[in-house]
Nucleic acid binder design. Structure first.
Length: 963
RNA sequence: GGGUGAUUAGCUCAGUUGGCUAGAGCGUUCGCUUGACGUGCGAAAGGUCACAGGUUCGAGUCCUGUAUCACCCACCA
């Protein structure tokens, strides 16, 4: 491929066919003229000398500060710290960027200038991102860093587009988690929550919250997030609480919240119920015991198998499949439960799997969900034998008080002794565990509050037909829809103290339940009973579900609510799609009659270098603050946004961050170069206007970089609009370093006139704008060094300017670049020191005039002494050669040439070329291809073929000349 | 049991609607005080795009199957 779609020149430059040589130039005339074979040894000895030179001692040790350099210079404080301050002379810009001293100052500055506060836009467009409120339980981790980076990236992009932008911050009270850490904290002082009592416990929880809220918010700021802090919310703010109460009461009145007795997931350690989503299943190998149950008054028996023999104390039936022929004679009989000798019925139920085990199932309604369902179908007895504490209950008789495990052992042993134990086998099955503390859960029969999901799900499905909800990546749409189609009721009560207390009140006289937004003292029904509020609190996610509208003042009809609901994009990790995203969607649909956002962007999970999930509880993972301290927030942000793809997990290594820190520093130095060479700094607009007028008169490289800049503007804008952050970042990176720095700055050095200075400035300012959403700190800092009006954060996003595009020129300049690389190749191959100038002869054939126009660039960048450019010709001296796009490039090296090696090199190239041409020809002779492929493809292949043939021809010519 | 994702250079990953003699960063090798930057510069080596079929003029990209890994949902004792 010649020039790529984007017109990038980097690809062709890396081609293998182009061979060797060293570096570039400056204006000083060449000094060392005698071309001599430079041996590797000679090079080494020089290196050794350098290390021992006095100057070397001044170099910074690796990993130490950047302060000293090879050329020690007097530095001001600002200088040495890598920051730019008002009144600082430009020449004082430090050699390396030091984020630590810049970030805090800039952040403060942004806030002082109210730049994070939404400002009405001319277009009326708005962009709203609700933050996923971090828990007030601890410190920022990389998961947070991830979403903060992406959300802020979008926010800053849209703010620069001129939209009225709101990034709404806040924190979550995080019920169980917070209660757990507060209890742990109290335990250190030897206190328990029971000792303290509810009120005092809540006091210390609030204290905890105050402290950690401040910490976490501060950490959020460290990432550079441009949240509107004036609108910050906490899920237990009075306003939020009001919203929660209203939602609860409304849903209750509509019959969508109910209270019922049900077998729920109980965590004996947390002492609360959990919703199905908060249960993790983990595989475990246990013993499955088979027990013989005898039929009453007969010697017939049935064998049942179980992994939980201790629950047999609560058995109230044995179930068989109605069609199971083996057990026909047992239908209608009763069995004697061993140990207790209780009489239990045999029931028939289709839930039984005939093919599993013996085909007979013990039924323990109080401790198994399937059994509980059978209990309801068959009107059985229900006996609970395990208590809230996870120990055997009083109903377990002599086993009461034992742990479940102990009881299991004892009962198994007892069954063995009485001869009812038939078999024990290893069995692998899934065990339910608490998402928070990993304790084994017990199904527990109790009265709880539930949200009736079916009607809400259907309402949501309807709404989603009217409004499009876009998922990025789109595969999550299916996951989302499947869940909606297969919902279960949501258990929302929690036996905790920290959270929104359920607004339900019970009468101590008539047992009536009053559900009310405001406290009720006396029973409205019997008029005499006093009311006591339900002690339980709501699932944390209940309040999070209201986040998109409760944060804006709902249920009040506030201006904010009108303006900023619905939000634009909800960005979060795919792991909380059901916990949070789903619930926001159906709650918002129900109460706002509009989806809460139009797009759901789901990022992957951040993992460590080994691919392990970052988890602070396990002590794995990098601390974002440490990373920021060492490499800067910008470097961290880059590492979490460039090269990533939505929905896919990211591995983060310090090496990656370091690389990005290096990039940030590169940007700093490119700016530094420009600052040092600029006499005056005009605004982007002024420069752009000037360049637009002069465009046609500009040099080819100048037109090239301007064209590429326009293309970058277009690409980055498109990519960011379509949530392709990784892609946008990658191209910008390549443009910044690989094109602007590596080529344009080097070319500009050869002729620093007013035009080139204008272009350097224009490109840099544009680049700073394009980079700003990714790396806000350094870009803002550099922006200020160019004396631009207003801050970068609120500058206008650039627009691609058609008057600054010259597409044809991209092709032309590529030749020049390829020639430079080709010559450098030759030099490197022959170990010519970079600073030594060499003579070069180019037979450029059809490109002669064009190449001549690039002579000075080639000469400068490839360090050429005398550059001879001719249409064609013969060689006077022995030379090494290189073929660049059909142009013959020779570097005379009399006496130092291994002719055989040269021949082999050319022959290899000829062979490769020949093959490639053959395959192209085959393709272009293929009737199917000619008739079915798009014309543009055929045309470009034809052109390609012609070009390649020319290259082949010249390669052969070269081979002859050398021989 | 159902579903999803991953599998591309030594490592970590890109690769938008199929047109690619397959790219980046790190690492490796060689050479550099080249006055923006050694947190740098120049050059190079390195890939049967997991495997097997298929669709297509053309497949890293689409389809089917297989393997391995990861995850999600449901949980049958």
């Amino acid at each position: 491929m010649a020039t790529s779609k984007t017109g990038k020149i980097s690809k062709p430059l890396k081609k293998k066919q182009i061979a060797s040589a060293p570096a570039k130039t400056n204006k000083t005339p060449a000094s060392g003229k005698k071309v001599a074979g430079m041996t590797p040894l000679a090079g080494k000895s020089i290196e050794i000398m350098q290390k021992n030179s006095p100057e070397a001692a001044l170099r910074p040790e690796p990993g130490k500060s950047q302060r000293s350099g090879a050329r020690p210079a007097q530095k001001t404080a600002a200088h040495s710290k890598g920051i730019i301050q008002k009144g600082t002379k430009k020449s004082d810009m430090a050699r390396a960027y030091d984020p630590a001293h810049v970030e805090t100052r800039l952040y403060k500055n942004w806030i002082e200038n109210d730049t994070f506060v939404p400002r009405p836009s001319k277009s009326g467009k708005r962009f709203v991102v609700p933050i996923p409120p971090p828990n007030v339980t601890g410190n920022l981790h990389l998961g947070h860093a991830m979403f903060l980076t992406l959300q802020d990236l979008m926010t800053r992009f849209h703010r620069m587009l001129g939209e009225e932008t709101l990034y709404l911050p806040g924190t979550d009270h995080a019920g169980i988690s917070t209660q757990m850490v507060v209890e742990k904290h109290l335990a250190k002082e030897g206190k328990t929550r029971e000792q303290l009592g509810r009120e005092k416990f809540l006091d210390s929880a609030w204290q905890w919250k105050e402290k950690y809220r401040d910490i976490i918010l501060d950490q959020i700021r460290r990432m550079g997030t441009s949240c509107d802090w004036s609108r910050e919310r906490f899920t237990m703010d009075p306003g939020m609480n009001r919203a929660v109460r209203k939602v609860f009461v409304d849903l209750y009145n509509e019959g969508l919240i109910y209270r019922d007795k049900y077998l729920v997931n109980w965590c004996p350690r947390c002492k609360t119920v959990l919703s199905d989503l908060e249960v993790n299943y983990k595989e475990e190998t246990t013993k499955m015991v088979s027990i013989r149950y005898f039929v009453k008054a007969a010697d017939k028996s049935i064998i049942v198998s179980t992994v939980r023999p201790e629950t047999m104390l609560g058995d109230t039936a044995v179930a068989l499949h109605p069609d199971d022929k083996r057990y026909k004679e047992f239908h209608g009989k009763t069995l004697i439960l061993p140990i207790l000798n209780r009489e239990i019925p045999i029931i028939l139920d289709e839930a039984v799997d005939m093919n599993f085990g013996s085909g007979a199932v013990k039924v323990t309604p109080a401790h198994d969900l399937t059994d509980y369902e059978m209990y309801k179908r068959h009107h059985l007895e229900i006996i609970s034998v395990i208590g809230k504490d996870g120990k055997m209950a009083r109903s377990a008789g002599k086993y009461a008080g034992l742990s479940v495990e102990q009881a299991r052992e004892n009962i198994t042993e007892y069954l063995r002794n009485i001869g009812n134990l038939e078999d024990i086998q290893e069995y692998v099955h899934n065990v339910a565990r608490c998402e928070r503390c990993d304790t084994k859960l017990e199904p527990y029969l109790s009265e709880q509050w539930f949200v009736r999901m079916r009607p809400l799900a259907e309402e949501t499905l309807d709404q989603m037909k009217k409004e499009k909800l876009t998922f990025v990546p789109d595969r999550f749409e299916k996951v989302f829809m499947d869940w909606l189609h297969n919902v279960h009721d949501w258990c929302i009560s929690r036996q905790l103290w920290w959270g929104h207390q359920i607004p339900a009140y019970y009468c101590d006289q008539c047992a009536d339940i009053v559900v009310s937004e405001d406290p009720v003292q006396t029973c409205p029904k019997c008029k005499k009973g006093s009311l006591r509020q339900d002690e339980d609190v709501l699932d944390t996610w209940f309040s999070s579900a209201l986040w998109p509208f409760s944060t804006l003042g709902w249920p009040l009809k506030t201006e904010d609510l009108q303006k900023f609901y619905p939000a634009s994009v909800l960005e979060t990790g795919y792991d909380i799609i059901f916990f949070w995203v789903m619930r926001m969607v159906f709650m918002s649909t129900h109460f706002m009659k509009k989806l809460p956002f139009h797009t759901v962007y789901l990022h992957g999970l951040v993992r460590d270098e080994q691919g392990r999930k970052m988890s602070k509880s396990k002590g794995i993972g990098l601390d974002p603050l440490e990373v920021i301290k060492k490499y800067g927030a910008d470097a961290l942000r880059l590492s979490l946004s460039v090269g990533i793809t939505p929905g896919n997990d990211v591995r983060l290594s310090l090496g990656k961050v370091e690389g990005n820190r290096n990039f940030v520093n590169k940007l700093w130095n490119a700016s530094r170069f420009i600052v040092l060479n600029l006499e005056k700094t005009d605004t982007v607009l002024e420069v752009e206007t000037r360049l637009t007028k002069r465009f046609k008169n500009l040099s080819s490289p100048s037109r090239w970089i301007l064209t590429r800049t326009q293309q970058m503007i277009q690409k980055v804008t498109d990519d960011l609009s379509q949530y392709r952050f990784g892609e946008a970042g990658t191209s910008l990176y390549e443009y910044t370093w690989g094109e602007f720095c590596d080529w344009y700055i080097e070319i500009a050095k050869t002729d620093l006139n007013d035009d080139t200075k204008d272009i350097l400035l224009y490109c840099m300012l544009t680049m700073l704008k394009l980079w700003h959403p990714f790396i806000p700190f350094i870009t803002e800092e550099l922006w200020s060094s160019f004396d631009q009006p207003s801050q970068l954060i609120i500058a206008d996003w650039p627009m691609s300017n058609k008057a600054l595009i010259d597409a044809k020129n991209l092709e032309d300049i590529r030749l020049a670049f390829d020639l430079v690389t080709g010559i450098r190749n030759l030099r490197a191959e022959k170990n010519i020191e970079p600073h030594r100038r060499v003579p070069i002869v180019i037979f450029a054939h059809a490109n002669t005039d064009l190449v001549k126009s690039y002579a000075s660039i080639i000469q400068a960048l490839a360090k050429v002494e005398t550059l001879t450019i001719q249409k064609e010709g013969t060689l006077k001296e022995q030379s090494v050669s290189q073929n660049v796009e059909g142009m013959e490039v020779y570097m005379p090296l009399a006496g130092l040439i291994d002719l055989e090696a040269e021949r082999k090199k050319l022959q290899a190239e000829i062979e490769q070329k020949t093959k490639f041409i053959a395959s192209l020809e085959r393709k272009l002779k293929n009737e199917d291809f000619l008739s079915k492929a798009p014309k543009a493809i055929i045309e470009s292949d034809r052109a390609r073929l012609a070009k390649e043939k020319e290259v082949l021809r010249t390669l052969k010519v070269q081979l002859e000349k050398i021989s």
